[in-house]
């Protein structure tokens, strides 16, 4: 018995609709985040993440309604990220029914917010997302820098030192995205994942670059056996596009010795 490595599908939501529809057989409405979340839940998702990319304040209420309707029907942990700037935003999202919030730019702008959220709601409710890019694409020994605003703004901060600071301030988990690999389908930046896993004592969720099931396995495999050593894998495209179901992914991982949760029939 050991704690399972988690598979977390991520849905981008804009104005209450999934931006890139989920190609699932038998889905009533591929653009409805609640329907998509239910489908992933049935398929064995260990958690579900909504990333809200809505720009306007009015659309916030639509998101909260989506969160509440999802929480009524989906009984796995639900994380919501995007556009969280203050404790009031966190409060509204958790009260709507999410279990965790994920913050990124706000943590860079106001690091004390991390302490404040952890103190008020507990570390388990806080995921800090870090978007990291190599200083030198060909040489991981040069390290990684933290970017914000979808990779447009370089903060100049060192990603490993930042992960460490976020852990010390109260992050419960680190969601680590490689900007070099995101969207490429070439696999995780395994050096980055390993470096952060070795640096912090909290769970690390690997993200960015998954194109095959073998990539998932590499990211989750222990460091001692050449993998990234991540605790969880967040993925979007590989599941949304119907390339693979979560059930398939778990069977693949199980066959290769990665402990994953079996779904109750």
């Amino acid at each position: 018995m050991t704690v399972a490595r988690r598979l977390i599908p991520c849905l981008d939501v804009k104005n209450g609709r999934v931006v890139k529809g989920v190609q699932f057989v038998g889905l009533r409405d591929a653009g409805d985040p609640v329907d998509c979340a239910r489908a992933y839940d049935r398929d064995g998702a260990d958690e579900i993440t909504f990333l809200d990319i809505t720009a306007t304040h009015e659309a916030r209420d639509i998101l909260l309604d989506v969160v509440a309707r999802t929480a009524d029907q989906v009984f796995v942990p639900l994380t919501v990220g995007g556009g969280i700037r203050a404790r009031a935003d966190v409060d509204a999202i958790l009260r709507a029914g999410a279990d965790k919030v994920s913050i990124n730019s706000a943590a860079v702008k106001t690091p004390e917010l991390v302490n404040e959220i952890a103190d008020a709601y507990g570390r388990q409710a806080l995921v800090v997302a870090i978007d990291a890019r190599r200083r030198d694409a060909a040489d991981p020994s040069k390290g990684w820098e933290v970017f914000t605003h979808g990779g447009r703004v370089n903060t100049g901060r060192d990603a490993l030192a930042w992960a460490d600071e976020m852990h010390r301030r109260g992050a419960g988990e680190i969601l680590l995205t490689s900007m070099d690999r995101d969207g490429t389908g070439r696999g995780y930046d395994l050096e980055l994942v390993r470096a952060v896993v070795e640096r912090v004592a909290i769970p690390v969720i690997a993200s960015g670059g998954v194109g095959t099931l073998a990539h998932l396995e590499e990211g989750l495999r222990p460091i001692a056996r050449g993998g990234g050593g991540a605790d969880a894998a967040l993925a979007a495209t590989i599941f949304h596009d119907g390339l693979h179901t979560l059930t398939e992914a778990k069977a693949f991982l199980r066959e290769r010795g990665v402990p994953v949760r079996a779904t109750t029939p």
Partner: peptide, 16 residues
């Protein structure tokens, strides 16, 4: 595998 056992215990686990 030599990986550290993280606290809190967070995630899915099996029961006996």
């Amino acid at each position: 595998d030599g990986a550290r056992v993280k606290i809190p215990h967070m995630g899915w686990n099996q029961v006996s």
